Amino acid sequence: MVGVAGRFEEEVKEKYLQTTRLIERLHRRFLDVIKTELDRLGVEDINNVQTLILFNINEDQLTVGELTARGYYLGSNVSYNVKKLVENGYLLQERSSHDRRMTRVKLAQKGLDLTLRIDQLYARNAQELEGRFSAENLESVNKVLQGLERYWSNLVSYTP
């Protein structure tokens, strides 16, 4: 016989697993939205993940390590994507004047132009969402997701 505490624990576990699956699906669907926009714009030399990298870099000048540390890239092959972005003219890569082993990246004009178009997509999305969600609704969702991020970060950081 499962007690009240056990039922509550099972309910929370099920909701937690539902949330993790939803986060994963939302990320994939968001990448689909970006891919659809790239197709609409006729951009074929960059993928959706690389487009997110560009958008997150924006006006900054970063090392490849900083891309990952700041959460701008979530995959394991960031060096490959940076290489492709440089080859296709979206990023400029420069050796650090202080440490010749380190390279910094910044957007080339082609990257700036694309991020402007993606920013316009985000503005259209925000405008369309206004009738469905309030800023307060989205802020509430963000607080929950930030709490999950902190929780998972603590699990990873403090696990022996």
Rank of each mutant, 00 (worst) to 15 (best):
K110M: 06
K83F: 14
L67H: 00
A108I: 10
Y90A: 06
E87C: 06
L74C: 00
G71K: 03
A123V: 10
L67E: 00
S79Y: 14
E87F: 04
M102C: 09
H98C: 04
G71R: 02
Y90I: 03
D113H: 09
V78G: 07
S96P: 02
K83E: 15
A108F: 08
L91D: 04
V78C: 05
L116H: 08
A69H: 05
R100K: 13
N88R: 12
Y73M: 01
D119I: 01
H98A: 11
G111N: 08
V82M: 12
S76N: 04
G111M: 08
L92W: 03
G75E: 04
R117I: 01
R95S: 09
I118H: 05
N88K: 10
Y122S: 14
R70H: 02
L92Q: 10
L121D: 01
L67K: 00
T115A: 01
K84R: 14
G89D: 04
S97H: 09
N88L: 03
A69N: 07
A123Y: 09
V82Q: 11
S76G: 08
D99A: 10
Y122W: 14
G71D: 00
R95F: 07
A123Q: 14
A123K: 14
Q93F: 07
K83Q: 15
L112C: 11
L85D: 11
